[in-house]
Simulated assay, not measured.
Amino acid sequence: MKNIILLTIEALQYDFILKALLVGVLIAICCSFLGIFLVLRKYSMIGDGLAHVSFATIAIALLLDKSPLLVSIPLVILSSFIILKLTEKGGLHGDAAIGLISSSAVAVGVLISSISKGFNIDLFSYLFGSILVISNLDVIFSVILSIVVILTILFFYNSLFAITYDEEFAKVIGLNVKHMNYLISVLTSITIVLGIRVVGTMLISSMIIFPTITALQISKSFKNTILISLVVSVLSVVLGVFLSFIFNFPTGATIVILNAICFIICLCMKKIKSY
Rank of each mutant, 00 (worst) to 15 (best):
F141L: 14
F141M: 15
V143L: 15
L145F: 15
S146I: 12
V148Y: 15
V148K: 09
V149H: 06
I150N: 06
L154M: 07
L154Y: 09
F156N: 06
Y157P: 04
N158M: 04
N158L: 08
S159Y: 01
F161N: 00
A162N: 08
A162D: 05
A162E: 01
A162R: 00
A162F: 02
A162P: 02
T164H: 07
T164G: 05
Y165R: 06
K171L: 05
V172G: 00
V172C: 01
V172P: 00
V172E: 15
V172N: 11
G174M: 06
L175W: 00
K178V: 11
S185P: 09
V186S: 02
V186Q: 03
L187V: 04
T188W: 04
I190Y: 11
I192R: 07
I192W: 13
V193D: 11
G200C: 13
M202E: 00
L203W: 03
L203D: 13
I204P: 04
S205R: 12
M207S: 12
I208W: 13
I209W: 00
F210L: 15
P211V: 12
P211M: 12
T212P: 01
T212S: 09
A215N: 07
L216Y: 01
I218F: 09
S219L: 03
K220S: 14
S221C: 07
F222K: 05
N224F: 13
T225M: 06
I226S: 06
S229C: 11
L230I: 07
V232H: 14
S233W: 04
V234L: 11
L235C: 13
S236F: 13
L239Q: 04
G240Q: 06
F242Q: 10
F242H: 13
L243E: 01
S244K: 00
S244D: 00
F247N: 04
N248P: 03
T251C: 02
G252P: 10
